[in-house]
Amino acid sequence: MTEILRPLGNISRALDSIANHEFQRVQLTKGQYLYLARVAEHPGIILERLAELLRVDRTTAARAVQKLTTAGVLEKRPDDTNRKIKRLFVTAQGEQVYPLVKRENDYSNNRALQGFTPAEAAQLASYLERVDANVVQDWVAVKQGQTRTY
């Protein structure tokens, strides 16, 4: 069987480590840049959807959002029709930091695809989307309390 998870894990850990180092200067701690980026890309997103996008449980997402809210990077606003629903937005402070996050992401993406033709890069992206779609099925099942059968 072709091993893909180890290289994917290595790539993910390396880029996460680099990003965490880069964002220390703007007071973003481990992984917080991911939350800032997704909220900036999806203004008004709700916590449950944010957790799904990042493939983390709701408690982990809530804890990270609370820290970013306290730090003044994100804010929660009540939904216009259902006041129980809180929507997430980037604050003015977060808007100042987001371009750095975006720039780092673009640089890392370009670096990772160095030497690939545009067609190869598109094909790789397509393959990775398929891998993600396969894996997310188990992620959802496990989050719902199911156990995988090996």
Rank of each mutant, 00 (worst) to 15 (best):
residue 1 M to L: 11
residue 2 T to W: 09
residue 4 I to V: 15
residue 6 R to K: 14
residue 8 L to T: 09
residue 9 G to H: 12
residue 10 N to R: 11
residue 11 I to D: 07
residue 11 I to S: 08
residue 12 S to T: 15
residue 12 S to M: 08
residue 13 R to Y: 15
residue 13 R to C: 09
residue 17 S to K: 10
residue 17 S to H: 13
residue 17 S to A: 13
residue 19 A to N: 04
residue 19 A to S: 13
residue 20 N to M: 03
residue 21 H to M: 12
residue 22 E to H: 08
residue 22 E to S: 07
residue 25 R to E: 15
residue 25 R to M: 09
residue 25 R to K: 12
residue 26 V to N: 00
residue 26 V to G: 00
residue 26 V to I: 15
residue 27 Q to D: 15
residue 28 L to H: 03
residue 28 L to Q: 00
residue 28 L to I: 07
residue 29 T to I: 15
residue 31 G to T: 01
residue 32 Q to I: 02
residue 32 Q to F: 05
residue 33 Y to E: 02
residue 33 Y to T: 04
residue 34 L to F: 08
residue 34 L to E: 05
residue 36 L to Y: 01
residue 36 L to P: 02
residue 37 A to Q: 06
residue 37 A to F: 12
residue 38 R to S: 11
residue 39 V to C: 00
residue 39 V to F: 02
residue 40 A to I: 06
residue 42 H to R: 08
residue 44 G to D: 05
residue 45 I to H: 02
residue 49 R to V: 15
residue 50 L to T: 06
residue 50 L to R: 03
residue 50 L to K: 00
residue 50 L to W: 04
residue 50 L to D: 01
residue 51 A to H: 01
residue 53 L to S: 04
residue 53 L to V: 08
residue 53 L to H: 09
residue 53 L to Y: 12
residue 54 L to H: 06
residue 54 L to S: 01
residue 56 V to Q: 00
residue 56 V to T: 08
residue 56 V to W: 01
residue 57 D to V: 09
residue 58 R to T: 15
residue 59 T to E: 14
residue 67 K to C: 04
residue 67 K to D: 09
residue 68 L to F: 05
residue 69 T to G: 07
residue 69 T to Y: 10
residue 70 T to Q: 14
residue 70 T to L: 09
residue 71 A to S: 06
residue 73 V to A: 00
residue 73 V to Y: 09
residue 75 E to Q: 11
residue 78 P to K: 00
residue 79 D to L: 03
residue 79 D to C: 02
residue 80 D to N: 14
residue 81 T to C: 06
residue 82 N to Y: 07
residue 82 N to E: 13
residue 84 K to E: 14
residue 86 K to P: 00
residue 86 K to Y: 01
residue 87 R to M: 08
residue 88 L to T: 01
residue 89 F to A: 00
residue 92 A to H: 12
residue 94 G to T: 01
residue 95 E to G: 11
residue 95 E to T: 07
residue 95 E to Q: 10
residue 96 Q to C: 07
residue 97 V to N: 00
residue 98 Y to W: 14
residue 99 P to D: 05
residue 99 P to A: 03
residue 106 D to S: 08
residue 106 D to K: 05
residue 110 N to I: 06
residue 113 L to Q: 10
residue 114 Q to L: 11
residue 115 G to W: 05
residue 116 F to C: 09
residue 116 F to L: 14
residue 118 P to V: 04
residue 119 A to H: 11
residue 119 A to G: 07
residue 120 E to V: 15
residue 120 E to D: 12
residue 120 E to T: 15
residue 120 E to P: 03
residue 121 A to Q: 03
residue 121 A to E: 05
residue 122 A to R: 08
residue 124 L to Y: 11
residue 124 L to N: 05
residue 125 A to K: 11
residue 125 A to C: 09
residue 126 S to N: 14
residue 126 S to K: 07
residue 127 Y to T: 10
residue 128 L to N: 01
residue 128 L to D: 02
residue 129 E to W: 06
residue 129 E to F: 08
residue 131 V to Q: 04
residue 131 V to H: 06
residue 131 V to T: 13
residue 132 D to M: 10
residue 133 A to G: 09
residue 136 V to G: 03
residue 137 Q to C: 06
residue 140 V to N: 08
residue 142 V to A: 05
residue 143 K to I: 09
residue 144 Q to P: 02
residue 147 T to S: 13
residue 148 R to Y: 10
residue 148 R to G: 12
residue 149 T to I: 15
residue 149 T to V: 14
residue 150 Y to S: 11
